[in-house]
Design a protein around this nucleic acid. Structure first.
Lengths: 137, 137
DNA sequence: TTGAATCACTTGCAAAATGCAAGCAATCAG
DNA sequence: CTGATTGCTTGCATTTTGCAAGTGATTCAA
C-alpha cells in the first residue's frame, strides 16, 4: 500500500516537492527561517509580506508534519515556542538560492531588496553551506 | 512610480519569483514544457497530475504575461497553438533541478517517477544546458 | 498579588481561488 | 455535409484564503 501523499502527488519529484511547499506562503516561511533566522511565531508573523495568523499556524503544522521544521518549547520562556528548520528544511537552501538568482536576473524592479541576493552573489557556496549547517547568515 | 507587481511583492527576490510561479500549477506547467517538451494545450492538459482546463488557460495567460512562455499559431494547423518557453522560462532549469534533487533525497516513495531525476543525476550540467538551450531531453 | 501586556494561537465569516462538467466556435478529415 | 478534434469559456459547487476579533496561558510591572 504505497499511499500517495495527496491527490496531486503523481510520483514526479517536482510534484512531491510542490506538494509540500507549492503554495503562496510555505517557501516564504522557510526563507524567513533560513535567511532571516526567524524562530518564533511572532517573528514569522512580522515577516516582509504579512501572512495572516491563521494561515501561518496552518502552514507551520503542515511543515512540521512534512518534516521541514520542528517545534519546541522555549526553555527560557513558558509562553513562546521555538521553531527550527530540520536538515530536510535547510537542504532547501539551493532551491532558495536558485530562485533568488533567477529573480535577480529578471526582476526589473530596482528597489528589490537584495540582501540575500548580494550574499549569494558574493559567496554562493559559503552561503549555502551556512544555511545547511543552520548557521546565521 | 515603482508600482509593485502584486499585493504580495515585498521586494524580496524569492517573493518576486513566487509571485510568478508560487502556486500549485505554474511550475508543473513549466516542468511539462521544459522536461517533457509539451507544446500544445492538449499536451499540457494530459499532464501527469490532471490540471483542470480553465485553470490551465488562466495559468498560460499569466505565464505569457510574465514573459515565461510565448504563444503562436501553429503554421501547419489552424486549430492548434504552440506554446514555447522563453529564455526567462528556460532559465528556471536550475530551480527545477534543485527541487528534483531535493525530492530525490527526501521522497520515501520508491515508486517515484525518476526519469528527470536520473538525467540530472547522470549529467546535471548537460541537462541544465539542454533545457536552457530549448533542446529536447 | 493583581491587573495589564504579550505570545501563540483559534474562530467566524466574507472573498477569492479552484475543480468539475458542460458548452461552444473554429478547423479539418472523410 | 458530418462528425471528430482542438482550444478554450462558462456556470456553479467546493475549497482555500484573508481579515478581524477573541481566547487562554504566561509573564511582568506596580
Amino acid at each position: 500500500m504505497t499511499q500517495s501523499r495527496s491527490k496531486y502527488d503523481s510520483g514526479c519529484p517536482v510534484a512531491y516537492a510542490l506538494d509540500i511547499f507549492g503554495d503562496r506562503w510555505s517557501l516564504l516561511v522557510i526563507r524567513d527561517m533560513a535567511v532571516k533566522g526567524a524562530r518564533t511565531y511572532g517573528e514569522l508573523l512580522a515577516g516582509w509580506e504579512g501572512i495572516s495568523t491563521n494561515i501561518l499556524a496552518q502552514r507551520l503544522k503542515q511543515l512540521e508534519q512534512a518534516g521541514i521544521i520542528t517545534k519546541q518549547k522555549d526553555p527560557d520562556s513558558g509562553r513562546s515556542s521555538v521553531y527550527e528548520l530540520t536538515q530536510k528544511g535547510r537542504d532547501l537552501a539551493p532551491v532558495l538560492i536558485e530562485i533568488a538568482l533567477w529573480s535577480g536576473r529578471y526582476n526589473p524592479d530596482p528597489d528589490a531588496m537584495t540582501g540575500f541576493l548580494d550574499k549569494i552573489t558574493a559567496d554562493r557556496a559559503g552561503t549555502e553551506a551556512r544555511i545547511r549547517a543552520g548557521e546565521r547568515l
